[in-house]
Simulated assay, not measured.
Amino acid sequence: MLRISSLSWFLIMGIFDKCLTDNAGVTFTFKEYQYKDSPKNEMTFHEFESACEQSSACSQLSGLTRTRCVRECVSPSCYRELYVSDPLEEGEIDVRLNSFKGCFIQRSGRTRN
């Protein structure tokens, strides 16, 4: 049976508490664009996304690298604004996707209801 001394336990808990405290105040912020989730907007976005997935630049890639490539292809300016300073990471839930779609729709001049 493993025994942990009181001093060791105190040090372990101190490190654990510091980790929790250090990460507790971190807030992720990004520019938000309104996106109306309509069939026409989804169709427009999907058309560009499909074309980019089939492009020579992105078609041979896979996983996260492909996702990044496709997003940058769909809208380089929106990609730069929302992802370049904090790239999407493996396993990350992409909370910026709707904002990216809103930026794309707005900049493409295809705003639809």
Rank of each mutant, 00 (worst) to 15 (best):
A51D: 12
V84C: 04
I93S: 13
S55D: 10
N23I: 00
E89M: 01
R96S: 05
P76H: 13
R68N: 14
G109T: 09
S75W: 00
R66H: 08
G14R: 05
C103H: 04
C69K: 02
S75G: 13
N113H: 15
C103L: 00
S50T: 12
V95L: 15
F48H: 14
N98R: 06
N98P: 00
P76R: 01
L20G: 15
I93V: 15
D22A: 09
M1W: 13
L88K: 08
E32A: 10
V74N: 08
R80Y: 12
R68W: 08
F28L: 08
Y83P: 01
L2D: 08
T65C: 06
T67N: 07
F10W: 12
Y33A: 01
Q60G: 14
M13P: 00
R110I: 02
A57C: 02
E90P: 11
E49H: 11
S5A: 00
N41H: 04
R68M: 11
G25A: 10
L64I: 11
A24H: 10
R112H: 09
Q54R: 13
S5T: 15
R110E: 10
S62D: 15
E42H: 01
S75T: 08
I105E: 09
G109M: 00
C19S: 08
G91V: 11
L2Q: 09
Y79P: 00
R107W: 15
L64C: 01
S6R: 12
Q60L: 07
D86L: 04
R110S: 13
S75V: 02
I15H: 01
I4T: 01
F10L: 04
G109Q: 03
N98D: 15
R107T: 07
F45V: 04
R3K: 12
V26P: 08
I12E: 00
N23R: 07
S59W: 07
C69D: 10
F48E: 10
V70D: 11
W9C: 01
G14K: 06
L97T: 08
L61T: 05
T29I: 07
R107V: 03
E89N: 10
I105C: 09
V95M: 12
T111C: 02
C58N: 04
V95S: 14
S99C: 02
V70K: 03
G14I: 06
K40C: 06
W9V: 03
T44F: 12
Y83E: 06
C103R: 00
G91P: 14
S85F: 06
P39S: 00
P87S: 07
F100L: 03
P76S: 12
D86A: 03
E81G: 12
S59N: 13
C19Q: 10
E92D: 13
C103A: 05
K31G: 06
C69A: 09
V95E: 14
R112F: 02
F45Y: 15
W9F: 09
F10P: 00
